[in-house]
């Protein structure tokens, strides 16, 4: 049973979501918040497995609420469900600690899949967001005429990149690839350097852009 907290300032939206989610036998909505602050409080009180979070909310917006929830509980799985279809919102949500980003107009189709992925520790993005990020990335590459830095990575590094992007911890990766923890950490550092990235969210974004993960 996956326990879910809904945070959206629109009652109609929350009702729709509840209906959608509770059609699944293994999902249960344990709380509804109408603004960011309430979401933070309820997350602390109910300790849900998954938080479904809108961005545009009064009092405290979804990105800030996500940051506070993840700060308190790093294992909290937050799915952003927003109208905003722009990179800046995706990046900021990821930096705040969200692991999935869905567009509201694709909620009905993708929400169940997203909850499935996120509870397994993976990331998830709406197809529209994925193609947007990819498109922008390709566009930037075209513009800069730059060589794709992905080519700089070794095969081993590419394997590690994919696993990191899928949400695996260093320890899990070491186990899967039969490497020492230290070696995995070194690979990770090299990947970030070669790709000119600075954090795990950026790495995830990069992986989405490259189509390494979905």
């Amino acid at each position: 049973m996956t326990r879910i907290l809904l945070a959206d300032d629109h009652t109609v939206m929350r009702n729709g979501l509840r209906l959608l989610l509770e059609r699944q036998p293994d999902l249960k909505v344990v709380g509804e918040a109408a603004d960011g602050r309430q979401a933070v409080d309820l997350a602390a009180a109910k300790n849900p497995d998954v938080v479904i979070m809108d961005i545009a909310m009064p009092q405290l917006n979804g990105v800030e609420a996500t940051r506070q929830i993840v700060n308190r509980n790093p294992d909290a799985a937050v799915v952003i469900l927003s109208m905003h279809k722009d990179e800046s919102y995706v990046i900021r949500s990821l930096k705040a600690g969200a692991r999935a980003y869905l567009l509201k107009d694709s909620a009905e189709a993708d929400l169940i899949a997203a909850i499935g992925a996120i509870t397994e520790g993976k990331s998830f993005f709406s197809p529209a967001i994925r193609s947007l990020l990819k498109e922008d990335y390709m566009h930037q590459l075209d513009e800069l005429g730059a060589e794709d830095s992905y080519e700089l990575l070794t095969n081993r590094e590419r394997e590690v990149l994919q696993l990191v992007a899928e949400g695996k911890s260093n320890k899990e990766i070491a186990g899967m690839l039969n490497l020492s923890l230290y070696t995995v950490e070194t690979h990770r550092t090299h990947i970030l350097q070669k790709l000119n990235l600075h954090s795990a969210p950026e790495l995830i974004l990069y992986a989405v852009r490259k189509g390494i993960i979905s």
Binding site: V12, L20, K104, A107, E108, A109
Partner: peptide
């Protein structure tokens, strides 16, 4: 537009999905 109309349309979309089920 964003907060009211957009959200309502999203909700409508979802309700349509619920109805389809």
């Amino acid at each position: 537009l964003h907060d009211e109309v957009g959200q309502s349309l999203s909700a409508l979309l979802m309700e349509a999905g619920n109805a389809a089920a």
